[in-house]
């Protein structure tokens, strides 16, 4: 599988873009709408003109037409051929490559089995659900055994449950294939789950390329930090394993019990939306529950950010405006702070 290098590429919003995607890695591109993510995929696949150069395995493919680049694409709108049934959609690339009929049938059948869509072979795209359509589109893009796979928001416009289900399947399929993959999404959580490395695009430029871990602990600038959600980074002064999979960490006056499989934790990143605030004592045990003083309240469009001092630390919490309106918070007031455990990230000692 090739590595991909973009050298000084310009197209639409992208100006002088440089980046390298490593062989067999799952490279996730995140960014807001209009950041240039889809343009990046179009440049790599060759379906659009561009300035600059794209190299695959060190060889320029600028003059190579899309059909010869060995790139499989899952377009954002999927672009399943509406006049072909599921089988013919998946077989299209193989037939275009002049593959023998019996081989086409065998390959399509195995792909349908892998994506668990055998029962849909005779159906037309408009009769399928969103999740089924995505599976068919993915099978179609994989059918000609591409060297590079480009996926443009494959889980968007699906309900949360279906998206999660498809995401898990995608991770399995991609890891199994060991294919160089560029995966575009605007969902950072998804990027974290799926990517070997993440690139954040903003206004056509790449702001940061790093491992998911470094995105949270070492954002290179304010923009990345803002996109990541300005996590609260807590340095741990002490940490000990309580039981298998459970660690107690101490940071100044804060003591927390966290699910963790390693030995000890040096640092914790807590996303602001993982901090729950309440003006009344929450029910249940006092585990990971603290009292703090409200320092600052900032109203954004749909959310409200509240800075709270807890045990000598300043934590940033973010909550939906509707949730904020249901509690009574004001500067200087005491508040209960609960750390949720779902999306914490750790640095091991």
């Amino acid at each position: 599988m090739p590595d991909i290098r973009l050298v000084n590429v310009s197209r639409h919003i992208c100006r002088g873009l440089n980046l390298t995607i490593r062989d067999r890695e799952i490279f996730v591109v995140v960014g807001t709408t209009g950041a240039g993510k889809t343009t990046l995929l179009n440049v790599i696949s060759g379906v659009t003109d561009y300035e600059g150069s794209v190299l695959m395995d060190g060889r320029s493919v600028d003059r190579v037409p899309p059909r010869k680049r060995g790139v499989g694409c899952l377009f954002q709108g999927l672009a399943l051929f509406p006049h072909l049934d599921v089988f013919s959609n998946i077989a299209f690339g193989l037939q275009a490559g002049g593959v023998e009929r019996s081989v086409v049938e065998a390959r399509v059948s195995s792909l349908m089995e892998m994506m668990r869509i055998q029962h849909l072979a005779d159906r037309y795209p408009h009769t399928l659900s969103g999740g089924e359509q995505k599976r068919v589109a993915l099978a179609r893009s994989l059918a000609p055994s591409p060297q590079v796979l480009l996926l443009d928001e494959p889980t968007s416009s699906l309900d949360r449950q279906t998206a999660k289900y498809l995401r898990n399947e995608l991770i399995q399929v991609l890891k199994g294939l060991g294919i160089t993959t560029v995966f575009v999404t605007h969902d950072l959580r998804e990027a974290e789950e799926i990517g070997d490395r993440i690139a954040l695009m903003f206004n056509g430029n790449v702001e940061q390329i790093s491992t998911p871990h470094d995105f949270f602990f070492n954002p290179v600038n304010e923009r990345v930090s803002e996109f990541v959600g300005m996590p609260n980074i807590i340095e741990c002064t002490r940490s000990r394993v309580l039981a298998s999979g459970l660690v107690e960490v101490v940071s100044d006056d804060m003591k927390m019990v966290l699910p963790y499989d390693g030995n000890s934790i040096r640092r914790i990143a807590i996303p602001p939306d993982e901090i729950y605030l309440s003006d009344v004592r929450p029910p249940g045990p006092a585990l990971n529950r603290f009292t703090g003083i409200v320092q600052e309240i900032t109203s954004l469009q749909a959310t409200v950010r509240v800075r709270v001092s807890v045990g000598g630390k300043s934590l940033l919490a973010e909550m939906p405006a509707s949730a904020f309106n249901e509690i009574s918070l004001e500067k200087g007031k005491e508040v209960y702070v609960v750390i949720k455990l779902r999306r914490l990230r750790y640095v091991e000692s």
């Binding site: 696949s45 379906v47 037409p65 899309p66 059909r67 680049r69 499989g72 672009a79 275009a96 000609p144």
Partner: peptide, 23 residues
């Protein structure tokens, strides 16, 4: 004809004639 279908066929390796007659 929506340009996306043509692009999809291109990336699937179809020749111009195949794209014309099959898509």
């Amino acid at each position: 004809v929506d340009r996306r279908y043509i692009q999809a066929a291109e990336t699937l390796g179809a020749s111009n004639m195949r794209i014309l007659f099959k898509v």
